[in-house]
Amino acid sequence: MANRNGTAGKTKSSLDRLGGQKFVVLLVIVGLFIFFSLMSPNFRKYTTFVSILDYSYYIVLMSIGVTFPLITGGVDLSIGTGLICYSLVGGYLISFYHVPVWAGMLVTVLFGSAIGLLNGCLVALMDIPPFLVTLCTCMITRGLGSIIVGGFGITWPTAIQPGGWFRNIFKLSTASNTKIPIGIIWVVILVLVMSFVLNHTKVGRYTIGIGSNKEAARLSGVNVKAYHILAYVISGTFAGLAAIAYSAVFSTVQPGTGAGFELEAIGGAIIGGVSASGGAGTVTGSLLGVLVICLLKTGLPFIGLTANWQQNITGLVLIGAVMIDVIKKRREVK
């Protein structure tokens, strides 16, 4: 239902433009940061800061990508196990077939795009519910990764080995052994690029259009199917990029893991203002939302809670975020 009162509509929209929810999320991030810093001296250290970032890159990247299918009103549950699968395959080629590292990385990302394409086709062309499609590809990628590498953990080249340069993509070591988290730069660039794509290109415009009113978009002459597929390709590709971030940070990649990563990414996106029913959302919002989750995940152990608590808290925060969405909508109807 549209807001009947013109002036009320105006104020609401200007608040929206300031990014009401984003602002609140930003406050939460700052609050959490201060809280953890006060509670634990260790948290205040520079090395902790760097390691928080290390553990965040891959989730942030997944979150940027999954924002697109979420905005179409769908979801991509395959990104978590997919990430591990792509990383395993890329690492396997590098370690056992002596493929150059850059080529291995390329394969990793393209594999992600391919699974994204598969998801998109099943959703857009065959009309299968997105959660079901991606639940299946989630399992398939999990099995596939293990089978391809033969069930063993894969180690991408370490920093001192030849080809280890790729680990410096996210973290530079200086001569005095101080780490510089240059991964931030890439994340910021990608966030800016994808923000641009979402807000200023046809791809983004039609992604929102599909989530907002698919039929109206189709009647306006938009090739709805192609753009629907593309949303999943973007999500898959970013899962591939996340796989590289993951490989660069962790020494070995274990087959069979990765389940649950997708929830952190999707949860972050929804906390950051992506509507669970599609149509609304921003890349910067997803970034902020996912930072909340990463902070909780890395901060909780510093105040004596195991990381397991974070799983509970993520689940509850996700439900809470959607509930707020539901309440808002109910109010609008009234």
């Binding site: 929830l263 397991n308 959607v322």
Partner: peptide, 26 residues
């Protein structure tokens, strides 16, 4: 609450894993 079932599933999946780990100390 009319929350989409897949979101509820995702959340309770995590809560189930987290609760079990916390309860049994992993």
């Amino acid at each position: 609450w009319d929350i989409p079932p897949f979101i509820v599933s995702m959340a309770s999946m995590n809560i189930a894993k987290g609760t079990a780990s916390v309860f049994t100390k992993t």
